[in-house]
């Protein structure tokens, strides 16, 4: 069968959602940010809520998320996205409000805003990209950097004694009564992307049902910061990140999933 007979509009099975703009993504080749952006937008498209959604972009690699996500968006200062989202949601309780934040933004400078938004049960959705490093500023140690992991500010590896422990923010947030749905996913393989998308859908559905704060952590790669090829960085992530940041739902419908 000739390829021309296959490539026809009626045979289309997958294309980039129009909720992603046509702008070329500013991320490094192979970075999980782009995939994470796209599945958030696919969920918004599938739920038919583009006109009712307001997003909050962070500071970090995804500071320009509003260039790529085709919804009304505001850029927050570093770490304050949950506070900004709180202000929006309190003014527009009927609209969908989400933040998109990295680990430095959410788990270091924005820890207080994150925990308190979650503890108040703000009815917002947080998409949390955890790649264990500050990507934008050039690969410095993040709160989520693993023990022994080399970064530009832990060049001999993260020493727990002097640099502290990697922070499991998602586990911490799952403990709070204000959170309804908490999940940890990844986007490095087709199966994981599909699961992550389901989790993001569940998070937005939870917001729709006014159940409190929903959060999906996406353990992702930072091949530039980790100084690896994209595919190798994904393999390294599976081998090293997942044992410490295990994938799966932590809290569903306000109830902790077993062993949490």
């Amino acid at each position: 069968m000739d390829i021309k007979d296959i490539i026809k509009p009626e045979n289309l099975v997958y294309q980039k959602t129009p909720l992603m703009t046509d702008k070329t993504l500013s991320y490094c080749p192979g970075c999980g940010h782009g995939t994470a952006h796209r599945i958030v937008m696919e969920v918004i498209e599938e739920m038919g809520i583009q006109s009712e959604t307001i997003g909050v972009a962070p500071v970090g690699c995804s500071v320009l998320a509003y260039d790529f996500m085709n919804v009304d968006m505001v850029g927050a200062s570093h770490g304050r996205a949950p506070a900004v989202a709180t202000g929006i949601k309190r003014c527009w309780p009927e609209k969908f409000v989400y933040t998109y934040q990295g680990d430095g933004d959410l788990a270091a400078i924005g820890t207080a805003e994150t925990i308190h938004a979650a503890n108040r049960g703000e009815n917002i959705t947080i998409i949390f990209i955890n790649n264990g490093i500050y990507g934008m500023t050039g690969g410095q140690m993040a709160p989520t950097t693993l023990e022994g992991m080399k970064t530009s500010t832990s060049p001999y590896g993260r020493d727990l004694k002097s640099m502290g422990n990697p922070l499991k923010m998602t586990e911490l947030l799952a403990q709070l009564p204000g959170t309804c749905y908490v999940s940890r996913q990844s986007v490095h393989s087709p199966r994981n992307v599909r699961r992550a998308k389901k989790a993001i859908r569940a998070a937005f559905e939870s917001q729709k049902a006014n159940k409190g704060l929903s959060l999906v952590e996406i353990v992702s790669n930072c091949n530039s910061g980790w100084k690896m090829e994209p595919v190798a960085s994904n393999e390294w992530m599976v081998e090293h990140m997942f044992p410490f940041y295990p994938l799966g739902d932590l809290k569903v419908d306000g109830k902790l999933v077993n062993n949490q």
Partner: peptide, 17 residues
């Protein structure tokens, strides 16, 4: 809010509406 920092950023978000 949990701090003045959070309060002013809530204002920022709310003002954007």
């Amino acid at each position: 809010a949990e701090s003045e920092v959070a309060a002013i950023n809530m204002v920022y978000g709310a003002a954007s509406t």
